[in-house]
């Protein structure tokens, strides 16, 4: 099993760490265009179509976040759609549109937690996560190797308790600072750091078990 680890090492990139607020305040501009605070003002001023700008800006990350939290793309799409509609209806309640990104993740995180609660478990069922593909001579080694690795990582993530899974994903997949994570989850920064640290330990133990 040394080959997979070698290839992972070759692909490894530095983890995202952004512990300071984005420059120019906290307004997050993912696409070119007006800052969030201006788009929010347009929507609240009656231009409902402008909400589409915010959807295009944040939908990909929200879908990815929800998919990692729920382990099921269909459930994640439902959670994000419900969250965005709810965000639109309550946009006037967003007290700091400059932190819209955190606010949207907060709403989506709440929807994901509700979804998990309905399943009577905070954990993803491993049956929701595809098992690693078995080698097949009809496929290229590279494709199979990548597929196996992704499935292994997804299963290791799914095995984490929801709070640690959320902390790891927000930190290292969505690239949030701890301050943004605090706004997105309502948890305190020391608590979030502890969750991230514990998630790393669990993930590393699971992955090393496989690739050792």
């Amino acid at each position: 099993m040394s080959a997979p680890r070698r290839s992972w090492l070759l692909r490894g990139k530095p983890l995202e760490n952004r512990d300071e607020a984005p420059p120019g305040g906290v307004t997050e501009v993912v696409n070119d265009g007006a800052p969030d605070i201006e788009v929010v003002a347009r929507v609240l001023g009656g231009d409902g179509e402008a909400f589409g700008i915010l959807i295009r800006r944040y939908e990909p990350g929200l879908l990815r976040f929800a998919t990692r939290m729920l382990g099921n793309p269909d459930a994640a799409a439902d959670a994000v759609a419900e969250s965005l509609v709810r965000a639109y209806r309550h946009l006037a309640q967003c007290r700091d549109p400059g932190r819209l990104r955190s606010w949207l993740y907060r709403i989506t995180g709440n929807r994901c937690r509700s979804h998990l609660a309905r399943r009577h478990s905070n954990d993803i069922s491993l049956s929701d996560v595809p098992a690693p593909a078995l080698a097949d001579s009809s496929d290229t080694w590279a494709v199979l190797e990548r597929g196996e690795q992704v499935a292994l990582v997804e299963r290791a993530l799914a095995a984490l308790p929801a709070e640690k899974r959320e902390a790891f994903v927000l930190k290292h997949v969505e690239g949030m600072s701890y301050e943004e994570m605090a706004a997105a989850t309502g948890a305190r920064i020391p608590t979030l750091k502890m969750r991230v640290h514990r998630a790393r330990e669990a993930l590393l133990a699971a992955l090393e078990e496989v690739v050792r």
Partner: peptide, 12 residues
Amino acid sequence: SYALLSAAAQML
């Protein structure tokens, strides 16, 4: 270990 976790995060 750093590279392993980095690669895992990248895949996600």
